[in-house]
């Protein structure tokens, strides 16, 4: 069994998440080759075969060209699986490769099973087992689902390139908004989720944060709705945190949120839904109405 792993590179750097692909391949017990559109100055610590295209020539985000590069390498290597991370790079590129190969694509793999792969569904509440019906299969693996593996050594590099311009013109990056709060340093974070109900209820969550000597965090929907500023957002597109105590108030626990807070030392979740995925990572799940429980807890803590 053979895998072609598609590494990630952005703003002139190899992304560490690339090593999660090696972790996945090791669990699968498969041979590996890697393809990276990156730079000779940023080689992965991996002693296998690396097909390397120059990002300066092929672009960091140019899916048409990257697809062509991948297809050419697939024809040489003949892998059973072409493996991406389920990331803004991977979920954008994987379907293009799958269509070109007319291969099955299985998205957001979280576990390897005897005859297929397990993926999340229903906002992370449920799971599906999926079995491909094609010879080659395109996979995207969930960030954080497979522990990073850094085998060490230096790769045997095969340089590849592709001509043409592609249908997208990449203009540039816009940096993340400036943070007015550094959640990474907080010892206690009390986060508000959609279950809080409305913007007017945010001070209730803030009061618990204050009583515990912590900072206010938030899940994505709360930030999108404008209830709390983006600098408070915890998760893949916000900040990754690992405080001593994380209190999730009315947060169901989307994968992207869990990825950003599951390394916290102790997790207390308050949710009216007993089956909410936040329960998977919580040390304690209190099944209650957030707006009843939180003020009562704050009053007791403050005393």
């Amino acid at each position: 069994m053979k895998t072609l792993l598609i590494g990630e590179y952005r703003e002139g750097k190899l992304l560490d998440s690339t090593y999660e692909l090696l972790g996945f391949a090791a669990q699968l017990g498969a041979e590996t080759a890697m393809l990276l559109v990156g730079s000779e100055n940023q080689l992965p610590l991996y002693g296998g075969t690396l097909y390397l295209a120059d990002a300066a020539a092929c672009g960091e985000y140019n899916p048409d060209l990257h697809k062509k590069l991948i297809i050419e390498v697939v024809q040489q290597e003949n892998p059973d699986y072409i493996v991406f991370l389920h990331s803004s790079y991977g979920w954008d590129l994987a379907p293009r490769v799958a269509v070109a190969l007319k291969a099955a694509q299985i998205s957001e793999v979280i576990a390897i099973q005897d005859s297929g792969f397990e993926v999340g569904c229903c906002n992370g509440k449920m799971r599906r087992s999926v079995k491909p019906a094609t010879n080659k299969t395109v996979l995207t693996v969930q960030a954080g689902a497979f522990p990073a593996l850094q085998p060490g050594g230096l790769p045997t590099v095969h340089k590849i390139t592709s001509a043409g311009i592609g249908s997208l013109e990449f203009i540039g990056y816009e940096p993340a908004e400036k943070k007015d709060v550094d959640l990474a340093k907080a010892e206690v974070i009390v986060s508000a989720g959609r279950g809080v109900g409305k913007k007017d209820n945010i001070p209730v969550i803030q009061a618990l944060a204050k009583a515990l000597g912590g900072e206010l965090g938030a899940s994505r929907p709360v930030v999108d709705a404008g209830w709390v500023g983006h600098s408070h957002q915890v998760g893949t597109t916000g900040q990754n945190v690992s405080p001593k105590l994380y209190v999730a108030c009315g947060i169901s626990g989307a994968i992207q949120h869990l990825a950003g807070m599951k390394k916290s030392d102790f997790i207390l979740a308050i949710n009216k839904d007993k089956d909410a995925p936040i329960g998977e990572v919580a040390d304690v799940l209190v099944v209650a109405d957030v707006m009843q429980f939180v003020p009562a807890l704050t009053a007791k803590v403050a005393r």
Partner: peptide, 21 residues
């Protein structure tokens, strides 16, 4: 279809967590 779902199920309980009601 190119892929088939063979099972739909809840996540395996990891254990350790306490549920209070």
């Amino acid at each position: 279809s190119l892929a088939a779902t063979t099972s739909f199920h809840p996540p395996a309980k990891k254990g350790g967590g306490i549920v209070l009601e």
